[in-house]
Amino acid sequence: MNANYCKGITGRQQNSNQLQRTHAIYIAECGVVSQSIARVISTAPRLVQTHSITPLISFMSLSFKLTFFCAKDLKNRLFSILLNSEPHHPAISFLSNMTGNLDLSMGLTLEEATQWSKSLEVLLTDPRGLAAFRAFLKSEFSEENIDFWLVCEDYKKTKSTDKLSSKAQHIFREFIRSDAPKQVNIDGNMRDLLSRSILLPTNGCFEGAQRIIFGLMEKDSYPRFLKSDVYVNLINKIQANNSHR
């Protein structure tokens, strides 16, 4: 049996299980709210008789709000599951390998780490520097720029025409179009240009956008990285390791 087909079946089964678990949680949560509303309604006659209308109205209002938020929360959870169930495209599959608890100080000399402060280009040339920089951006929930830069680097090396077209479409959907999940900050003219370029894609069709994003990282993210705890602590750890030798 085809391996990709088996993977697809497994992915759909896992997604189905997630949906079932989410639905069960929603039923349980809203069940608690429903029980609260039922208790209020059952005590309504007594509250009315004792002229305690204000607490009745306040509590029922709160209960209905909670029910509304249960439904809204379910919608958000289901959307997250469905969004994350999309198969990873080869153009970005390698990004997941860059995350995790990496001890970047292992095997890294002080001279190599301080070289990262020379320029963003030097930093990105070192795989450990690239991993540290992406970890910093990920901690700020702003890794879309470095991810876009990375997939553009991968895209430029693509030789197959079929893969070039497939990757171009995926990069556009993932990073460029107005509703892209990881939309990067480029102007409307560049966005329109890319929407036309991917119809007949070349290895260089994303270079203009890549330069813009590199410039943004160079002026904003990179200086903040050099002052961040991620970088400062790494330097301090290497110095501490050297002093114990």
Rank of each mutant, 00 (worst) to 15 (best):
N4A: 15
N4F: 08
K7I: 01
R12S: 11
Q13I: 15
L19E: 02
A24K: 10
E29Q: 14
G31E: 09
V33S: 11
V33D: 10
I37H: 02
A38Q: 08
A38K: 09
R39G: 14
S42F: 06
P45A: 12
R46F: 03
T54S: 07
P55H: 10
I57V: 15
M60C: 10
F64D: 05
K65S: 13
L66D: 05
T67K: 14
L74I: 02
K75H: 09
K75D: 12
L78T: 11
N84R: 11
N84W: 01
S93V: 08
M98L: 14
T99N: 09
G100Q: 10
L104V: 07
S105H: 06
M106I: 15
G107T: 06
L108I: 05
L108N: 02
S117V: 02
L120M: 14
E121R: 12
L124C: 07
R128L: 15
R134D: 01
F136P: 04
K138W: 02
K138E: 09
F141Q: 08
E143N: 09
E144R: 07
N145S: 13
I146L: 15
D147E: 14
V151Y: 05
V151A: 04
V151F: 00
C152G: 13
T158G: 02
S160V: 08
A168K: 05
I171M: 07
F175A: 05
I176T: 04
S178V: 13
A180E: 04
Q183G: 08
V184I: 15
I186H: 06
D187Q: 07
M190P: 06
M190E: 15
D192V: 11
L193H: 10
L194K: 02
S195M: 09
S195R: 13
R196K: 15
S197Q: 13
I198T: 04
L200M: 11
P201F: 07
P201N: 08
N203T: 14
G204C: 11
G208E: 13
G208N: 12
F214D: 02
P223L: 09
P223N: 03
F225W: 00
K227A: 13
K227G: 07
D229W: 03
V230F: 01
N236P: 03
I238Y: 00
A240H: 10
N242I: 11
S243G: 05
